[in-house]
Amino acid sequence: MKQDPLNIIVAGVGGQGNIRASEIIGTAAVQSGFRVTIGETYGAAQRGGSVMSHIRISEKSQYGPLIPEGQAHIVLGLEPAEALRVIGDFGNPLTKVIVNPRPIYPVDVLSGELKYPPVEQITAKIENLVDTIHVVETTELAKQAGNASAQNVVMVGCLAGSGWLPMRVQGLEEAIRNIFRGALIELNLQAFRLGLAAAATTTKNRP
């Protein structure tokens, strides 16, 4: 691997399926023989708060569950402001980002106490800070797959399609088959494949 450990952050809002997304990536990595550690957010912070999963994949040894400052290689943003928030601490000029542009408004924004900027402003700022950004309407694609909340799995599909992971696409599909049950397997595989296809067409590189 070019980067070892490979550091990935999944950023979102409690309830968006961060933990599930990181579990799929982590399971596939373990099945491919990598050492994996994932730091998660559970509990109180899940109630509408900012959440992130730190995923660390290595060929040689185990790493701690928290990525050091500025060391994120890949950021998956399930929500645009949350993607920017983790780049603030963990981003660097070589970071690669995939982001769902659909905002989830904090309660203080809904009440008018804080402002949520136009999404284009957030994605433009991210683009300015990192190497690569793919903006993918993962919620819309998840609706096509049958359930808007499968946007986390669409995002994993985008990551698989980006070619930034050291594991094969089949390994991630296998992980989805192992993690979900019943009708949810097919729905999530469909979500994953829509993400995979989107990654190929929504590339937006910095000149």
């Binding site: 809002v13 309830g15 109180a44 912070a45 109630r47 509408g48 708060g49 900012s50 402001a81 949350e82 920017l84 928030r85 780049i87 603030g88 601490d89 981003g91 904090p106 309660v107 203080d108 924004v109 804080l114 402002k115 949520y116 900027p117 402003q121 957030i122 700022k125 800070l129």
Partner: peptide, 17 residues
């Protein structure tokens, strides 16, 4: 990077679901 968060990412207070 930190200034961008300050100006563009509003804080997220915990809320009931």
């Amino acid at each position: 990077a930190r200034e961008a968060v300050e100006s563009l990412a509003p804080k997220r207070a915990l809320a009931f679901c």
